[in-house]
């Protein structure tokens, strides 16, 4: 059996008194996209940088493609896209990608990759003169040009416009179809929902939830609608079955949770009608990954 792409078990990493990873465990398989989600400072980048061989773990075990992450043999097998890019500011896009391709035995044709990511027009443009989105895509191209078995993408679509984001998503889907293991960190819940086979939610250095997106969002559905703010929810609830819950968050956005049978929908709309409340965007849907994320990590801002 081929080893797991990434196998992190009980990872501990401290910076002085600050604990970045506190017994963190997850696995990632080949041919799958694994998304690491978590608030800023949760320990995502630390974890990824230990898997990339940049830092040493203080405790626990980490295996990447079955090897110690600091094994030099992994450098040819693993592609890396850093948040900071790491492209020399004066380098031209085409020149830089050809340079990186030159480090590998059987690289993807750099011209083809530039074309795929819409960078052909800036092939002769210096990195510092490219837009933020173009810079991101060049860093992505450099991560995959060596035909790796595993790629780490740290916030690959942060700050991208919708077209560039779509091009990035399509490339990630193609990597996955080709059997590459993709580890993605992101703040973009829609991105995780669309791309990830496996979602790992990290907070305060530990994994607080881990599973396929439908497992995390669950089968539970919600009734959502918008209406004028400040409806009397206690009065509404008294007209509904006892186990039903209702909340308004943010103002004017209402969520009803409970046994969503047709009668419940009728009771809610009847109550609204009797109070002269016009609802908008009334719908019944599953919880989104964002709901799950906010539920698990809290809504308050972190300092």
């Amino acid at each position: 059996m081929t080893p797991l792409a990434v196998d992190v078990n009980g990872l501990v990493k401290r910076y002085g008194t600050n604990i970045a990873a506190d017994g963190l465990s997850f696995t990632a398989r080949r041919g799958e996209v694994t998304a690491l989600l978590g608030p800023n400072g949760a320990g995502k980048t630390t974890t990824v940088e230990i898997c990339e061989g940049y830092r040493r773990a203080d405790g626990g075990t980490v295996r990447v493609l079955g090897l110690d992450p600091r094994d030099q043999a992994l450098r040819a097998r693993v592609g890396v896209m850093l948040q900071s890019g790491g492209v020399p500011t004066g380098a031209r896009a085409g020149e830089y990608l050809r340079l990186v391709a030159g480090f590998y035995a059987d690289p993807v044709d750099p011209a083809l990759l530039l074309e795929r990511l819409g960078l052909t027009g800036v092939a002769r443009t210096a990195y510092r003169r490219m837009s933020g989105g173009q810079q991101q895509r060049l860093a992505l191209a450099a991560a995959v040009v060596g035909r790796p078995e595993l790629v780490f993408l740290d916030e690959p679509t942060a700050g991208l416009d919708p077209q560039a984001r779509l091009a990035t998503w399509e490339l990630v889907e193609e990597l996955k179809a080709a059997g590459v293991a993709v580890i993605l960190t992101t703040h973009h819940m829609e991105e995780a929902e669309r791309l990830a086979d496996q979602v790992v939610i990290v907070d305060r250095g530990v994994v607080i939830a881990d599973g396929r997106p439908p497992e995390l969002t669950g089968a539970e559905r919600q009734l959502r609608f918008r209406a004028r703010p400040g409806l009397g929810l206690d009065e509404l609830l008294s007209a509904l079955p006892p186990a039903t819950m209702a909340k308004e968050s943010p103002a004017g956005h209402y969520v009803i949770e409970g046994d969503l049978v047709p009668e419940l929908l009728a009771s809610v709309t009847a109550w609204c009608a009797s109070h002269g409340v016009m609802t908008e965007d009334l719908r019944i849907e599953r919880r989104t990954l964002e709901d799950v994320f906010l539920e698990l990590t809290g809504r308050e801002l972190r300092s």
């Binding site: 004066g90 380098a91 080709a178």
Partner: peptide, 29 residues
């Protein structure tokens, strides 16, 4: 599915890597 991204990892020979990096650095200077 066979695509341009089907994994085919491997490092180039060391002299070729050094040559590529040197050519790049000289050009940029």
């Amino acid at each position: 599915m066979n695509t341009v991204f089907t994994p085919s990892p491997g490092a180039a020979p060391l002299p070729r890597m050094i040559g590529a990096q040197t050519a790049y650095e000289v050009r940029n200077l």
